[in-house]
């Protein structure tokens, strides 16, 4: 009996220990990645890196065009994706009952969209936006040379907008749900129509949520490289992109090419670590501000 008891204790210690070990392993992963990039990247961060253009076949100089291209890309992506995602969320939470068929189909599609591999979005961007829409526009406008029918900033942004759509929809819908039912009912009882209620009551009270969705989408979109591989990103450019049809440099793509296809990988190693740090800084700032806003939002909801 005592033997049985001690075996049970041992299993218990083992069972709890295994979970603790898993957490320690994850913490190890987080700290080793962060530590590596901080230690190896921080010494090479400088103002000239952030502000200068690359020189000598991208082996020297700064990464300003890549930062500029990434910023421009996520900006256009946000302008394209966030309105659509917000409207979808409004439709799902304000105009439909949760158990009706069509909203369930939409939810299924949103979840499926979130699970589609990012490289497939890249193929979709190439096959649909560049080849179909872009060339269609060229034909319609009568362009002799390919203006829209080539990889470009606008197509990369559209592809990323499609990729980040689920992120926006889910977080905006969550935000819309934090608006209390009483406020909607009060508005409707005072004679406002449903659209007036949404426009004047629900949306102003969920702007933070929409902001969170946008920030999360940007954080996700800024780090994705696979979808823009064939839809507009290039390794080096003579000048900054000057329109939505030009190609652009991108931090993540820059890092990828520097570390795998550069003729002299070792020489650019400091540049690679510094680029990684800039990219991480960008995505983490965005993600943490989103998490912060969201936790404030949840507290507000709890407080009621």
């Amino acid at each position: 009996m005592t033997n049985n008891q001690s075996t049970k204790r041992l299993i218990g210690i083992f069972a709890v220990g295994a979970t603790l070990l898993a957490v320690v392993a994850i913490a190890g992963l987080v700290f080793s990645t962060m530590g590596t990039f901080l230690v190896k990247g921080a010494p090479h961060l400088s103002w000239s890196l952030l502000s200068e253009a690359p020189r000598n076949n991208n082996t020297e100089g700064g990464i300003f065009p890549a930062i500029y291209g990434t910023t421009l890309l996520v900006l256009i992506m946000t302008l394209l994706g966030v309105p659509i995602g917000t409207i979808t969320a409004i439709y799902l939470s304000e105009y439909t009952r949760p158990n009706a068929v069509f909203p369930r189909i939409i939810r299924f599609a949103v979840n499926t969209l979130a699970g589609v591999p990012s490289i497939v979005f890249g193929l979709f961007g190439l096959g649909f936006f560049v080849q179909f829409v872009g060339r269609g526009m060229d034909t319609a406008l009568g362009n002799d040379t390919a203006l829209f029918g080539q990889p470009a900033l606008i197509w990369a942004a559209a592809t990323l907008a499609a990729l980040t759509l689920p992120v926006v929809i889910v977080s905006v819908e969550e935000a819309l749900r934090t608006v209390p039912r009483e406020m909607r009912e009060g508005s409707l009882a005072l004679g406002a129509t449903r659209w007036q209620t949404i426009w004047k009551i629900v949306l102003p009270n969920s702007t933070t949520g929409i902001l969170t969705g946008a920030i999360l989408a940007i954080g996700r979109g800024a780090g994705e490289v696979a979808p823009i591989l064939f839809t507009g990103a290039v390794y080096s450019l003579p000048q900054l992109p000057d329109g939505i049809t030009s190609q652009f440099m991108h931090l993540g793509y820059h890092l990828f090419v520097l570390s795998t296809q550069s003729p002299d990988v070792d020489k650019t190693l400091p540049l690679q670590y510094a680029t990684t740090l800039v990219l991480l800084g960008l995505t983490f700032t965005l993600n943490f501000s989103a998490t912060f806003i969201r936790s404030r939002l949840r507290q507000r909801q709890m407080g009621r």
Partner: peptide
């Protein structure tokens, strides 16, 4: 969440180098 926020190209770079 920090782990989830790592861009995949950064993870790839970490594997490649370290």
């Amino acid at each position: 969440e920090m782990l989830a926020g790592l861009p995949s190209v950064v993870i790839g770079f970490f594997c490649l180098m370290t």
